[in-house]
Design a protein around this nucleic acid. Structure first.
Lengths: 199, 199
DNA sequence: TTTTATACCACACATATGATTGGAATGTCA
DNA sequence: TGACATTCCAATCATATGTGTGGTATAAAA
């Protein structure tokens, strides 16, 4: 889910390594650690990459400080908060990203996880209120009884998945609304793994 | 859960600085950065602190790597999840800590913030379900309309704070329960700033 | 009393690490 | 074509940084 597309493939790999290093080791890499990971034989090569990444706005580096590589703001790998979901999934359009939720280790932010802001009160009896954020792990299958995110046409909806005989239904947690049968126009895009609300 | 030995006041300050450095700068400090922050004139002094913190289980350090100070999970500054709250607040007894919620930058986990597991359904219409975690910022005052955590005798309870004329009430979000007037037996211990639920 | 932990210092050493300079090959774009 | 970005290399330099040795002083614990 790249935000900006102006990185080369190799630059992406370097950025990814920096990201993994920070998330995995709790420590940004040194220039030589980057070099040895990619088999570069010169630190100058790494410097070229770092200056490119700085110039393109993905990282910041501080002079004369070891490991002083910082991921910039809403960089590549934080979880995007999407205000609405369109049929284009799993490719999230940039305009739909509402902000970024930095959950760090709460969620293992692999690229298949995102957060969705809930609209409407159809899940209110499940404790999911309008404007809550639901954390969604992208998957196209789900168990009955799980809370899922489904796409109906271009609209994303959060519902229980229920099975009756051979048929599946999207069931709201609000008696005001009716269940809807899962047919060809409905696709499951993920499972709700967490709810976060902030006051 | 491993029992950790007590830290001296100065050791706490050093640990706190390491923590702030990681959270604030996204980078653990070097030995000399620690030294200069505290005015230590020898790196040996810092090494003494680090070895003490390692031995007591608060940090890990890797040999021959710069800035390789790692906070051990469930360390001092993660947010404790308390299963119940007793009158002893704001000193949380260790036995009451149910686990640790690592929220990193979601919440600025100063020492006045903790998480409380909700029991009961008295706030169900506010979308706070049994077993949810509420993040609580410790404070003894609150505005009317805010969701607060109050202590009634030895029991912690999550309720709306409402004002009617001169009186304050703890008001549940569930018609099954009755509001309760705030009197001398009730003390406000914090304000709910977030709700987190995991499936 | 002896031992251990705490809390500092001075000084030196080895190396980890970030700059820097200069070059080369390749491809893109105006 | 020429300017420029990308992607590598070699080699060197300066210093940032972790480590080690050996102290002093105080207080608590065994």
């Amino acid at each position: 889910m790249p935000i900006k597309k102006d990185l080369t493939q190799k630059q992406k790999e370097v950025l990814r390594f920096i990201y993994d290093s920070i998330r995995g080791n709790n420590l940004p890499p040194t220039i030589r650690e980057i070099a040895s990971h990619f088999g570069f034989k010169s630190t100058g090569t790494v410097r070229d990459y770092l200056t490119a990444l700085v110039k393109k706005g993905y990282i910041k580096v501080s002079a004369n400080k070891s490991r002083a590589i910082e991921l910039v703001k809403e960089a590549l790998f934080s979880i995007p908060i999407v205000g609405q979901v369109r049929a284009g999934l799993p490719t999230l359009a940039v305009e739909e990203i509402e902000g970024y939720l930095n959950l760090d280790s709460l969620v293992f932010s692999d690229e298949s996880t995102f957060a969705l802001r809930v609209k409407g009160d159809s899940m209110i009896e499940a404790g999911i209120m309008p404007d809550d954020l639901v954390l969604v792990r992208r998957q196209d299958m789900a168990q009955t009884g799980e809370i899922i995110v489904a796409l109906i046409g271009e609209d994303a909806t959060v519902k229980y998945l229920k099975r009756v005989n051979q048929d599946y239904f999207l069931e709201p947690a609000n008696p005001v609304y009716q269940p809807r049968k899962v047919d060809g126009s409905v696709s499951i895009i993920g499972k709700v793994i967490s709810v976060v609300r902030r006051f």
